[in-house]
């Protein structure tokens, strides 16, 4: 555990909680892609199956349970409790274009051809692109609420911090996991355009809106 890893995890946790609180307090999931949230729930479910097979630490187990619990709570709020506020017309990204290729790739390129390992690989690949329905939705409506941009910033920052964590681990532990690193770079790159808008607009007190 190093500082980048810990702050990355906390940033991830902050993102998840910001989103839950935003929906809960405003009693609305307007502007939130339910499809991205389903993909994240799928990511955590397929990645954390090792909860049943191995114990790493109390921290590890607790965080996994919190992430999974929050992911399903978010999906529940969007598709059940506040379904009337869900903007399905703008959430039109075709998720099968992500899930099918990612599924194929995880069968082809993995560390070990075993069910758990393939599901872990699937979750890593899927996480790297799971935000695309959300970004697509923002590009379609041309704007995002400020609180939604804070959520996205924390979520992007988390994977960027993990990149520094992997650099750290490579130098000090000689450890690297090529699958996680490549997917992590892809994931972080997808946020770059958003990071730019966040810094140039949201941090200067303006609402995030894209030119028509």
């Amino acid at each position: 555990m190093n500082i980048f890893r810990l702050t990355g995890d906390l940033s991830h946790l902050a993102a998840i909680i910001i989103l839950l609180l935003k929906i809960w307090k405003s009693r609305s999931c307007a502007g939130i892609s339910g499809k991205s949230q389903i993909l994240f729930a799928l990511v955590f479910t397929t990645r954390y199956l090792d909860l049943f097979t191995s114990f790493i630490s109390l921290y590890n187990t607790c965080m996994k349970l919190i992430y999974i619990g929050c992911a399903y709570a978010t999906v529940y709020l969007i598709y059940a409790k506040f379904r009337a506020t869900y903007d399905g017309n703008h959430d039109s990204f075709r998720v099968e274009f992500l899930v099918v290729p990612v599924g194929g790739l995880s069968v082809l390129i993995n560390h070990d051809f075993s069910p758990l390992e393939i599901l872990w690989t699937f979750s890593i690949y899927l996480e790297s692109v799971a935000i695309l329905p959300q970004l697509f939705m923002i590009s379609k409506t041309g704007e995002a609420e400020t609180i939604t941009t804070h959520y996205l910033f924390c979520l992007g920052l988390y994977r960027a911090l993990y990149l520094f964590n992997w650099i750290w681990r490579f130098y000090f532990e000689g450890f690297f996991d090529m699958i996680a690193i490549v997917a992590g770079v892809v994931q972080t790159v997808l946020y770059c355009d958003f990071f730019y808008l966040y810094v140039t607009k949201v941090l200067k007190g303006k609402k995030l809106s894209l030119p028509a």
Binding site: D50, I56, D177
Partner: peptide, 10 residues
Amino acid sequence: KEETDGKDEL
């Protein structure tokens, strides 16, 4: 589990 098996990460 060893820290180096990677799955200690979230």
